[in-house]
């Protein structure tokens, strides 16, 4: 069965006729050509496919595109402001929070969601607990945790500065 799916993807309205069984991650990557969102395990465990749907981090390999019809979807491509990286992206670069980079889009989308939910100034224990749905096979996580901590501290500073 084919159906028309329409959503806001990184602020732009997109629409396509897809099979009902199409996963959101395939809609994003194949139908819309945004390949920043990765498929790692395809079994809902690794978190490489994490995107935000209506402001919440979800695994886009474990959701149908049809379930996101009418939703607001944010992928890693939608984070930067023009040439200026999002603070979490900048912190991953600064702290060497990646090696091969495959898990990075999911790590970054999970990190942004975690900072939004807990408020800035996260502690290391919370960051490690919150990362349990994201697997990295290169870094041993230390620099990822450092990057998220640095971004959260920096975003707390930015928030104070604007208040």
């Amino acid at each position: 069965m084919m159906s028309k799916v329409t959503m806001r993807l990184n602020g732009k309205t997109v629409s396509a006729d897809v099979e009902d069984r199409t996963l959101l991650v395939h809609f994003i990557r194949e139908t819309q050509g945004l390949t920043g969102t990765h498929v790692g395990c395809d079994t809902s465990q690794c978190g490489a496919c994490v995107v935000h749907v209506d402001g919440k981090a979800v695994k886009s390999c474990t959701m149908l595109a049809a379930q996101a019809d009418g939703s607001d979807v944010l992928t890693v491509e939608g984070l930067a402001n023009g040439d200026e990286l999002h603070p979490v992206q900048a912190a991953f670069r600064e702290n060497h929070g990646l090696q091969c980079g495959f898990c990075t889009p999911g790590m970054i989308m999970t990190a942004v969601d975690m900072i939004e939910r807990h408020g800035a100034k996260l502690d290391e224990k919370t960051i490690r607990h919150e990362l349990e749905g994201n697997i990295c096979r290169c870094t041993g996580y230390h620099n990822i945790v450092k990057a998220i901590k640095a971004a959260s501290d920096q975003m707390a500073g930015m928030k104070t500065a604007t208040e």
């Binding site: 994490v50 919440k56 979800v58 695994k59 474990t62 959701m63 999970t110 919150e130 749905g133 994201n134």
Partner: peptide
Amino acid sequence: IGDPAVRHK
């Protein structure tokens, strides 16, 4: 339960 992304759905 699960992880944060699973708990959101």
